[in-house]
Lab assay of single mutants.
Amino acid sequence: MLEGKVKWFNSEKGFGFIEVEGQDDVFVHFSAIQGEGFKTLEEGQAVSAEIVEGNRGPQAANVTKEA
């Protein structure tokens, strides 16, 4: 698991990027966000996630919002 913060997230398109210190930004799709209801993230929000290899490079999986 790694910790980072949301760089930006487009709720209409359902994707965005997470900033991780010392690494390239990581793509995040709404389907990777854990929880019930409408899955979205806010800019600057702290999150933790796993990194997996997607079709277009590294992407976030099992994204959870930090308190």
Rank of each mutant, 00 (worst) to 15 (best):
E19S: 14
F17T: 02
T64R: 15
E3K: 15
E53T: 13
Q59G: 04
F27Y: 07
I33S: 03
T40C: 13
F15Q: 02
H29Y: 06
E43T: 15
M1D: 05
G14I: 02
F27I: 01
F17V: 08
S31Q: 07
G4K: 00
E42A: 12
E43G: 12
G22V: 03
E43R: 15
V63E: 03
A32P: 06
F38P: 08
F30M: 08
G16E: 01
E3Y: 14
G37M: 05
G22D: 07
G37Y: 05
A32N: 09
F9I: 04
E19N: 07
G4R: 01
F30G: 07
Q45A: 09
K13V: 08
S31G: 08
K13A: 08
A60I: 03
E21L: 12
Q34E: 11
I18H: 00
Q23G: 11
S11T: 12
M1P: 11
G37H: 05
N10H: 08
G57D: 03
E36G: 10
N62Y: 10
V52H: 09
F17G: 01
G54E: 04
V63T: 02
E3N: 15
Q34M: 13
V26D: 00
I51R: 08
F15E: 02
Q59C: 08
E12M: 12
F27P: 00
Q34N: 14
V52D: 03
V52K: 09
E21D: 12
K65Q: 08
Q45H: 08
G54I: 04
L41F: 05
G44S: 05
I33M: 04
E53K: 13
W8I: 02
V20H: 03
E3W: 13
N55D: 12
P58T: 09
D25W: 09
G16M: 04
M1I: 13
Q45S: 08
P58M: 10
L2A: 09
F38W: 13
G35M: 13
G44N: 06
S11N: 10
A46E: 09
I33N: 03
E50H: 13
S48H: 14
H29L: 04
N62P: 02
Q34F: 10
K65F: 11
D24S: 12
N62A: 09
A61N: 09
Q23K: 12
E19L: 12
Q59W: 10
K7G: 03
T64N: 11
P58L: 12
F15D: 01
K7M: 01
L41Q: 01
W8H: 01
S11D: 08
A46W: 15
Q59R: 10
F30C: 10
K5Q: 07
W8D: 02
V28K: 00
G4D: 01
E21Y: 12
F17D: 00
V26N: 00
G37R: 01
G44T: 04
N62S: 10
S48K: 15
Q59D: 02
V47C: 04
T40Q: 06
E3M: 14
Q45E: 12
Q59N: 05
F30L: 08
D25Q: 05
A46L: 14
V26I: 12
S31L: 08
A61I: 14
Q23L: 13
D25P: 08
E50S: 13
S48V: 13
K7S: 03
F17R: 02
N10L: 05
A46Y: 14
E42P: 03
K39N: 07
E50A: 11
N10Q: 05
G37P: 04
V6G: 02
K5F: 11
V52C: 14
F27N: 05
A32E: 09
G14Y: 03
G44I: 02
E21F: 12
V6T: 03
Q45Y: 06
G44A: 04
A49L: 15
V63A: 03
S31P: 07
A46I: 14
L41W: 03
E21Q: 12
V6K: 01
V63Y: 00
A61E: 08
E12C: 15
F17S: 01
P58F: 11
L41S: 02
N10A: 06
Q34P: 06
V20E: 01
K5I: 13
W8T: 00
F27S: 01
F9W: 15
S31R: 07
K7N: 04
E21T: 11
L2V: 15
A49I: 15
V52S: 07
E50N: 13
G4S: 01
L41K: 00
V47E: 00
K65I: 15
E66L: 15
N62M: 11
F17W: 09
S11I: 10
A32M: 06
A67K: 13
G54F: 06
F15R: 00
V20C: 07
M1Q: 11
K65H: 08
R56S: 09
G4Y: 04
G14E: 01
T64D: 06
K5C: 13
F30D: 07
G44K: 05
E12T: 13
E3D: 10
G4F: 04
K39W: 06
E12D: 11
F15P: 01
F15C: 05
I18C: 04
T64Y: 12
G35R: 00
R56I: 07
E43Y: 13
A46V: 14
K13L: 11
A67F: 12
W8A: 00
R56W: 15
A60H: 02
F17P: 01
G14H: 02
K7D: 04
G57A: 05
P58D: 05
M1C: 13
W8C: 09
V20F: 15
T64F: 13
I18F: 02
G57R: 08
S48R: 15
A46K: 15
K65C: 10
F15H: 05
E42T: 13
Q23A: 11
A32K: 06
A61R: 12
F17I: 06
F15K: 00
G4V: 03
E66F: 13
V52N: 05
F9E: 03
G22W: 06
G4E: 00
K7A: 04
G22T: 03
E50V: 14
G16R: 00
A60F: 02
Q45M: 11
G22Q: 05
M1S: 11
A49C: 15
G57I: 03
T40W: 12
V28C: 07
L2N: 05
K13T: 07
A61K: 12
G14S: 02
K13W: 10
A46T: 12
V63I: 06
E42L: 13
E21R: 11
G35A: 09
N62H: 10
P58A: 08
G44Y: 04
A67V: 13
V20Q: 03
K7C: 08
F9G: 02
H29F: 09
F38R: 06
I18R: 00
E36C: 13
G54Q: 05
G4T: 01
E21S: 10
G57L: 05
R56K: 11
F27T: 04
G22H: 05
R56L: 09
G35K: 03
I33Y: 01
A60N: 02
S31W: 08
A32F: 03
Q45F: 06
S48P: 02
G22C: 08
F38D: 07
K65L: 12
G16I: 04
A32C: 10
K7Q: 03
V28T: 02
M1Y: 13
V6R: 00
A67N: 12
K5M: 08
E66D: 12
W8R: 01
G22I: 03
